[in-house]
């Protein structure tokens, strides 16, 4: 019998750049995406800042990860969600979010999906395991 595909969720709650968690957390997501698992990534609280477009870390002198986020879908990470409330209380709208890839058929740019906390809570309850970064 084929092994069931496990649902693994990543939650990103920390802001980028002030610490390494978001950056190293991204490395885990990219590796795990190569395995047989049903991966979703949820950005909530200060984690939503990691998805803000226009991040430029050149002057800071660190590599940054905006380019990788811009290609998340190429790394087979399709289920990317943003907590609506976290985004709104930070004065952000969907327009502020960076593009994570393009739709395979329409070639339209794809942004992370903005959803409500209730939907996220329901998704959390369905996971096999959750890793927080």
């Amino acid at each position: 019998m084929a092994e069931e595909i496990k649902k693994i969720m990543f939650t990103v709650r920390k802001p980028p750049h002030g610490s390494i968690y978001v950056y190293e957390g991204l490395e885990v997501k990219l590796i795990m995406a190569a395995y047989d698992a049903d991966i979703s990534v949820v950005f909530m609280d200060d984690g939503v800042y990691a998805l803000k477009q226009g991040q430029d870390t050149k002057e800071l002198g660190i590599k940054g990860f905006a380019a990788t986020y811009g290609a998340l879908m190429d790394y087979e990470i399709q289920k990317v969600y943003v907590d609506r409330h976290s985004m709104e209380i930070r004065g952000m709208t969907e327009d502020d979010l960076l593009i994570i890839g393009e739709d395979e058929e329409t070639e339209e740019p794809v942004k992370p999906q903005v959803i409500d906390s209730q939907a996220i809570a329901a998704m959390m309850a369905e996971q096999h395991n959750i890793l927080s970064f």
Binding site: I8, E27, I31, M32, D36, A37
Partner: peptide
């Protein structure tokens, strides 16, 4: 070892508990 080990643990274990 590599992050593949973390991946396998997360997939294979009944529970993953994160401390940080």
């Amino acid at each position: 070892s590599g992050l593949g080990q973390l991946t396998m643990m997360t997939i294979q274990a009944d529970r993953m508990v994160v401390f940080g």
